[in-house]
Design a binder for these strands. Structure first.
Lengths: 351, 351
DNA sequence: TTGTAAGCGTTATCAA
DNA sequence: TTGATAACGCTTACAA
C-alpha cells in the first residue's frame, strides 16, 4: 500500500476517538505540527498553535495515554500498596494516608493504582509484574511489616519504590515516616512531667517497626528520668480498640496510674476499660495516645496525643517517588517527619 | 532505511525490556509467530509453542500492557470512585466495598484505579477524561448522593458505568445495591414482634438514597402493624458514631423503648447514649442496626442488625461492569441483593 | 515554519 | 505452519 494519500477512508465506519490525525486534517497541517503545537513547542508560531488548539477543543480531542505511554515509556500512574484492607483495624489511619498519596499524585497529573498486599500479590510477585508490564512508573507501600523483606527485589531491578509510614531495618529501601521514637519519648515524658508514677504501655504488634520505635521511645524516657523499665507494665493491644481494652484491663490490675497507648484506637479501648472500672481520666489514670486521628478530640475526655503526620507522609512519599521516576535515578533516603504533642484533657498535673 | 536486516543493532545500549522481537530472534521465528504462540493460538504446533514459551520464560519476557492496550483498545483497568475519603465516617463500609471490587477485578485480571469524587474531580470532569484518554475501560461509583446527577454523561457518551450501593432515582444508570427498603422493614418488624412499642429511627443523611429507602422500610413496617408513624421519633444521625449518640440522646428524652439505627456506626453511638443514661439494652431499649460490620458482634451487648451485602455488592458490580465492557453493550439493570436479620443480644422479647 | 517517516511493542490480516 | 507488514496514536529526529 502506498504511503501518504488517502488510505481506506471509506472503511472508517466506527472511528471511536478523535486523534491528532483528525485535527491535522481539519486544520490542514501534519500530525507532527499538531503534536508540537499541542505540547506548546515554541517553534510553532502562535497563530498556528491557536488554530490547532481551537480545533482540538472543538473536536473534543483527548490524547491517548496508551499511545503516549508507549513512546515515552511512562504511564504516569503509580501503584499504592496497602495491607489487606479487610484485616486493617486502623482504617482511619489508612484513609488518611491514601488521601495524602492521592492528593499529591493528582496535583502532578498522576493516577493511582490501588493494590492490596494479599497472599497472591506476594506469591505471584505482582509487585514486580506491574513494573515489568509497564503498568506503573513507581510504587508506594504503606504499612509494611518486618516480614516484607522480599520487597527489596523491586529496587534491585531498578524500579522506583518508597515506603510510607514504615521501613525495614537493615534494608536500604527509601522511606518517609513520622518520628515514632520521639513520639513515644515525648508522650512518656509528658506523663512523667504530669507527675504520674506508674506508667504503662499499650503497644501495637511488634512486627511493625513503628510500634517498635514507639516502644523504644517510651523506654528511653523512663530511663532518662530515673524510672525503671518494668516489662510487666507493657501489654500488647494489636492496634485495635478491642486490643486496647483488653490490655488496659490487665494494666489496671497492675495499678498503673497512666498509660501511653501506641495509637489512638487503642487509647479509645483503654478509655472503655478505665470507665468500666469506675476510674477517672485523667485524675486516676492519665492517657496519652498517638496519631491524632480526627476522632481523638471527640473522645470524652478529649485525648492528649502525639500528632503523627500521616497525611503529610503520603504527600512527601509521592513527591520523592515522582522525583526518582522522572530523574531516572534510584536513590536511598530516610525522611523522618516531626511529631508533636497535642495536649488535651486526658492528662493533667497530679499529686 | 531498508526494511528487514539488522538496523542499528549497535546503538541498542540500554534496551530496557524484553520484547517479542527478542524472543523471535532468540528462537528464530517471526514476531507474529511469537505473538500467536504466546496467546496459545492452536494453529501454532505444540513444539514451536513450547520452544517459544520456554524462551519467553528464560528471557523474562512480560508483555507491555501499553502496547497491547493500544492495539486492542482496552486497558484492563477500571476506575473505582469513592467519596472523598477524609470525610467518610463509615470507613469500615468503604473498606469492605473496596475489597469486594478489588477481589473481583483481580480475579478477572483487571487493575483498579482509585479516584476520589473531589470537587476537582467533578469540576474538571475527570470522570469523562479518564475514558476519553483511554485510561480505563469502565467505572464503578460507590456511595453516590442524590446530587450526583451529572454522572449520567458517562453513559450518554457510551462508556460502561455502574453504581454500587446507591442509585439515582429517575435516572437510568445501572446499579447494584442491597435491599435497603427491606432492611428497614425487617429491622422494624423485628422490634415490633419483640414487643417494643415506641420505636424510634436514627437515620443517615437523607441525601443518600440508601438512607431514604431504609427510612421508607421503617415507615411501612410501622403502618402495616397498626403503629402510627410519628415524625418526632425520627432523628438524623448523619451516619456517624457521634451523630448516633446525639440523636439517641434526643430520642431518650422522647421515651422511645426501641430504635432502628440506619447503620451500625450510629447504633454504636446510640449504645453510648443509652448507657450514659443508665438504661439497659435490650431490657429498657432495644437496638437494631444495619450493615453488620465486623464490629457489630463486638459491641456490648452484641448488636442485632441487618446484614447488608457490602462486599458482595462490589463483586457483583464489577462482574456486571466487565461484562458490559467486554461485550461492548451498555445496558441498564437494577440488581438488588438480599439482606437478612442477624439476631443477637441488643433486642429481646419484652412485656 | 512545516512535513516525512521512524519508532514505541503489540495484534491481526494476508499471503506464502 | 509461518512470515511480512499494516495498524493502534503518539513523539521526535531529520529534512525540506
Amino acid at each position: 500500500m502506498k504511503k501518504g494519500g488517502k488510505k481506506m477512508e471509506e472503511t472508517g465506519e466506527k472511528k471511536q476517538y478523535v486523534t491528532i490525525k483528525d485535527i491535522a486534517e481539519y486544520v490542514g497541517v501534519s500530525t507532527a505540527t499538531v503534536s508540537l503545537a499541542l505540547s506548546r513547542n515554541p517553534r510553532i508560531p502562535d497563530e498556528t498553535r491557536e488554530k490547532i488548539i481551537d480545533a482540538a477543543k472543538k473536536l473534543g480531542y483527548r490524547p491517548s495515554t496508551l499511545a503516549r505511554g508507549l513512546v515515552k515509556n511512562k504511564t504516569y500512574t503509580i501503584a499504592l500498596v496497602i495491607p489487606q484492607i479487610k484485616r486493617i483495624f486502623v482504617q482511619a489511619y489508612f484513609a488518611l494516608s491514601v488521601s495524602g498519596v492521592y492528593d499529591e499524585l493528582t496535583e502532578h497529573g498522576y493516577k493511582l493504582l490501588l493494590e492490596m498486599a494479599s497472599y497472591e500479590f506476594v506469591r505471584r510477585k505482582r509487585y514486580l509484574r506491574l513494573f515489568r508490564e509497564r503498568s506503573i512508573d513507581g510504587m508506594i507501600y504503606i504499612g509494611s511489616t518486618l516480614y516484607d523483606t522480599y520487597l527489596k527485589e523491586i529496587l534491585e531491578e531498578g524500579y522506583p519504590f518508597v515506603f510510607v509510614g514504615s521501613y525495614l531495618p537493615d534494608i536500604k529501601i527509601p522511606y518517609v515516616t513520622g518520628d515514632n521514637f520521639k513520639g513515644g519519648y515525648i508522650a512518656t515524658k509528658h506523663l512523667i512531667s504530669c507527675g504520674y508514677k506508674r506508667i504503662g504501655l499499650i503497644t501495637g504488634s511488634l512486627n511493625v517497626v513503628s510500634a517498635v520505635d514507639r516502644f523504644k521511645g517510651y523506654k528511653k524516657a523512663l530511663k532518662e528520668n530515673g524510672f525503671g523499665f518494668n516489662p510487666k507494665f507493657v501489654e500488647k493491644g494489636h492496634f485495635s480498640e478491642e486490643g486496647g481494652y483488653e490490655a488496659m484491663k490487665k494494666l489496671i490490675k497492675k495499678k498503673v496510674d497512666a498509660v501511653f497507648a501506641g495509637n489512638d484506637l487503642m487509647a479509645q479501648g483503654a478509655y472503655r476499660a478505665i470507665k468500666e472500672s469506675g476510674l477517672r481520666i485523667p485524675q486516676d489514670i492519665g492517657v496519652v495516645g498517638m496519631d491524632d486521628l480526627p476522632s481523638a478530640s471527640l473522645l470524652d475526655p478529649p485525648l492528649t496525643t502525639v500528632k503523627y503526620p500521616i497525611y503529610e507522609m503520603g504527600r512527601v512519599g509521592v513527591k520523592k517517588l515522582i522525583e526518582m521516576s522522572e530523574k531516572g535515578i534510584i536513590s536511598y533516603f530516610e525522611e523522618v517527619l516531626p511529631v508533636k504533642l497535642i495536649f488535651r484533657k486526658s492528662t493533667s498535673k497530679v499529686r
